Measured scan of single mutants.
Amino acid sequence: MMAYMNPGPHYSVNALALSGPSVDLMHQAVPYPSAPRKQRRERTTFTRSQLEELEALFAKTQYPDVYAREEVALKINLPESRVQVWFKNRRAKCRQQRQQQKQQQQPPGGQAKARPAKRKAGTSPRPSTDVCPDPLGISDSYSPPLPGPSGSPTTAVATVSIWSPASESPLPEAQRAGLVASGPSLTSAPYAMTYAPASAFCSSPSAYGSPSSYFSGLDPYLSPMVPQLGGPALSPLSGPSVGPSLAQSPTSLSGQSYGAYSPVDSLEFKDPTGTWKFTYNPMDPLDYKDQSAWKFQIL
Score class of each variant (00 low, 15 high):
residue 84 Q to D: 15
residue 259 G to H: 07
residue 280 Y to D: 00
residue 144 P to W: 09
residue 41 R to W: 14
residue 148 G to C: 05
residue 255 G to F: 14
residue 106 Q to K: 10
residue 11 Y to P: 01
residue 286 L to T: 04
residue 148 G to L: 02
residue 107 P to N: 05
residue 25 L to F: 07
residue 175 Q to N: 05
residue 210 S to E: 01
residue 140 D to N: 04
residue 29 A to M: 11
residue 247 A to Y: 11
residue 88 K to Y: 13
residue 16 L to P: 00
residue 229 L to N: 01
residue 162 I to Y: 01
residue 99 Q to R: 06
residue 166 A to R: 10
residue 266 S to C: 05
residue 214 Y to E: 00
residue 262 S to L: 12
residue 145 P to S: 08
residue 107 P to T: 06
residue 71 E to T: 08
residue 257 S to W: 08
residue 130 D to H: 12
residue 208 Y to W: 15
residue 228 Q to A: 10
residue 53 E to I: 03
residue 143 S to G: 06
residue 97 Q to V: 08
residue 65 D to K: 15
residue 217 G to M: 15
residue 17 A to S: 04
residue 237 L to G: 03
residue 104 Q to V: 08
residue 156 A to P: 04
residue 263 P to N: 06
residue 189 A to T: 03
residue 293 A to W: 11
residue 91 R to Q: 14
residue 139 S to W: 10
residue 220 P to N: 09
residue 109 G to R: 12
residue 68 A to K: 10
residue 175 Q to M: 11
residue 119 R to K: 06
residue 219 D to K: 14
residue 204 S to C: 14
residue 294 W to D: 00
residue 43 R to A: 14
residue 167 S to I: 08
residue 114 A to Q: 03
residue 243 G to L: 12
residue 91 R to M: 14
residue 22 S to R: 08
residue 18 L to G: 00
residue 41 R to I: 14
residue 195 Y to G: 00
residue 204 S to P: 05
residue 133 P to G: 06
residue 258 Y to D: 02
residue 27 H to F: 15
residue 269 F to L: 02
residue 215 F to T: 01
residue 94 C to Y: 06
residue 73 A to Y: 15
residue 69 R to G: 12
residue 217 G to E: 05
residue 104 Q to E: 04
residue 147 P to I: 05
residue 150 S to D: 02
residue 281 N to E: 11
residue 165 P to V: 12
residue 57 L to V: 02
residue 111 Q to N: 03
residue 108 P to T: 07
residue 215 F to N: 00
residue 258 Y to G: 04
residue 255 G to P: 02
residue 217 G to N: 07
residue 230 G to E: 03
residue 165 P to N: 01
residue 162 I to W: 01
residue 148 G to K: 10
residue 119 R to I: 06
residue 170 P to Q: 11
residue 200 A to W: 15
residue 276 W to H: 00
residue 101 Q to A: 04
residue 222 L to H: 01
residue 165 P to A: 04
residue 90 R to C: 14
residue 103 Q to K: 08
residue 36 P to D: 08
residue 70 E to V: 11
residue 209 G to Q: 05
residue 53 E to S: 09
residue 286 L to G: 03
residue 294 W to Q: 00
residue 292 S to K: 13
residue 179 L to V: 04
residue 230 G to V: 15
residue 94 C to R: 13
residue 291 Q to M: 09
residue 237 L to N: 04
residue 274 G to A: 01
residue 162 I to R: 01
residue 182 S to N: 04
residue 48 R to W: 11
residue 297 Q to M: 14
residue 29 A to Y: 08
residue 98 R to I: 03
residue 34 S to C: 06
residue 99 Q to K: 10
residue 200 A to G: 05
residue 120 K to R: 03
residue 198 A to G: 01
residue 126 R to M: 02
residue 76 I to N: 15
residue 183 G to L: 14
residue 151 G to M: 07
residue 176 R to M: 05
residue 231 G to C: 13
residue 283 M to W: 09
residue 183 G to T: 08
residue 118 K to M: 00
residue 200 A to C: 11
residue 6 N to K: 07
residue 26 M to L: 08
residue 17 A to Q: 04
residue 255 G to C: 09
residue 266 S to K: 10
residue 176 R to C: 06
residue 273 T to V: 07
residue 169 S to T: 03
residue 144 P to G: 05
residue 37 R to K: 07
residue 44 T to H: 09
residue 270 K to N: 01
residue 4 Y to Q: 00
residue 145 P to I: 07
residue 203 S to V: 13
residue 35 A to Y: 10
residue 53 E to F: 03
residue 133 P to C: 13
residue 159 T to Q: 02
residue 103 Q to W: 03
residue 4 Y to N: 00
residue 35 A to F: 09
residue 253 L to G: 04
residue 47 T to L: 11
residue 89 N to E: 15
residue 273 T to D: 00
residue 49 S to F: 09
residue 268 E to S: 11
residue 252 S to V: 12
residue 278 F to R: 00
residue 287 D to S: 07
residue 255 G to R: 12
residue 143 S to P: 03
residue 216 S to D: 01
residue 228 Q to W: 14
residue 256 Q to N: 05
residue 68 A to M: 10
residue 9 P to K: 09
residue 258 Y to Q: 04
residue 190 P to S: 08
residue 40 R to L: 15
residue 258 Y to V: 05
residue 29 A to K: 06
residue 209 G to Y: 13
residue 108 P to M: 11
residue 279 T to G: 01
residue 66 V to G: 07
residue 66 V to A: 07
residue 124 S to H: 07
residue 114 A to S: 03
residue 264 V to D: 01
residue 295 K to W: 12
residue 276 W to K: 00
residue 232 P to N: 06
residue 261 Y to C: 04
residue 19 S to D: 02
residue 177 A to V: 12
residue 115 R to V: 02
residue 226 V to N: 02
residue 3 A to K: 07
residue 282 P to M: 10
residue 58 F to N: 14
residue 140 D to T: 04
residue 196 A to N: 02
residue 265 D to F: 12
residue 139 S to F: 08
residue 202 C to N: 04
residue 120 K to E: 03
residue 247 A to F: 15
residue 293 A to D: 02
residue 139 S to V: 04
residue 103 Q to S: 06
residue 102 K to F: 00
residue 253 L to R: 10
residue 248 Q to M: 04
residue 149 P to L: 10
residue 41 R to M: 11
residue 269 F to R: 02
residue 47 T to C: 07
residue 153 P to H: 07
residue 291 Q to L: 12
residue 199 S to W: 12
residue 23 V to P: 02
residue 175 Q to S: 10
residue 160 V to Q: 00
residue 5 M to L: 13
residue 241 S to K: 12
residue 166 A to I: 11
residue 263 P to Y: 10
residue 56 A to C: 02
residue 252 S to E: 02
residue 285 P to M: 08
residue 154 T to N: 03
residue 250 P to W: 12
residue 198 A to N: 01
residue 19 S to K: 11
residue 214 Y to R: 07
residue 95 R to W: 15
residue 149 P to V: 02
residue 54 L to R: 13
residue 178 G to T: 11
residue 292 S to L: 15
residue 71 E to M: 09
residue 275 T to L: 06
residue 279 T to L: 13
residue 240 P to H: 07
residue 57 L to Y: 13
